[in-house]
Amino acid sequence: MIQFYFQYQNHWLFLSIDLQLLLYKIMNELLNQLSVCVERGKINRDSKYPTDMIGMDGAIELTEKALALKIPASEVLNNGMMLGMQRVGVKFRDGKIFLPEVLIAAKAMSAGTALLKPYFQSGEVKHKGKVVVGTVAGDLHDIGKNLVKMVLEGGGWEVFDLGVNVNAEKFVNAVIEKSAKIVGLSALLTTTMQNMELITKQLKEEVKDVAVFIGGAPVTQAFADSINADKYFSDPQGMLEYLDKNFTNN
């Protein structure tokens, strides 16, 4: 607390400032602005979108300022960026926005989290968990898998992308090597979705307690049930919400 008198228009005024409270409010406001930037997809000061935020700091500048103020990196992530992505998730689930806006927000989030990389490496900030994703053997479609990767990363998960045309052995090896317990399988063809069964079976046999999730145009929950996969998701946001609820820090 600092207290002082000062003269203003021939009057002496007394001012008492609780510096701790002031700093707390500045930090909170900074994190709130950061969450809004992520939610609205404002990457940096030069970004021309959203138009009502032109010239304002974006996710990059606000993250830099927050770190310069010594706000813990985990606070910057959880109480800044992540809050923005959570609001995006709710709007998407409620049908108020569509996938492009999720991607716009995820890009701003990604720009901010890039500045947190050293903190992830030092262990000061932790991911919610590890997820291995890939498009199953025989299939070369990667768009759905890429979207899942971006949305999960934006949601604070560490994602290992094995690419396309990935067989059971590669999935098993990656899961063991990365000590991951969550796998996302993608397929876009009725032929290649059959390979999900083999991959799921092998993963379940060789990795204790692994959870296998599937997605892709021809896939359904009934199919997930029939191949003993843990769940089917129709969109990346649904998978993120499910993982957040059931697997955080697995």
Partner: peptide, 18 residues
Amino acid sequence: LSKSFMSNNEMLNGYIAD
């Protein structure tokens, strides 16, 4: 083109191109 966008982390452009 879509793949090129994706590999450059331009997911929105990649998704729309697809």
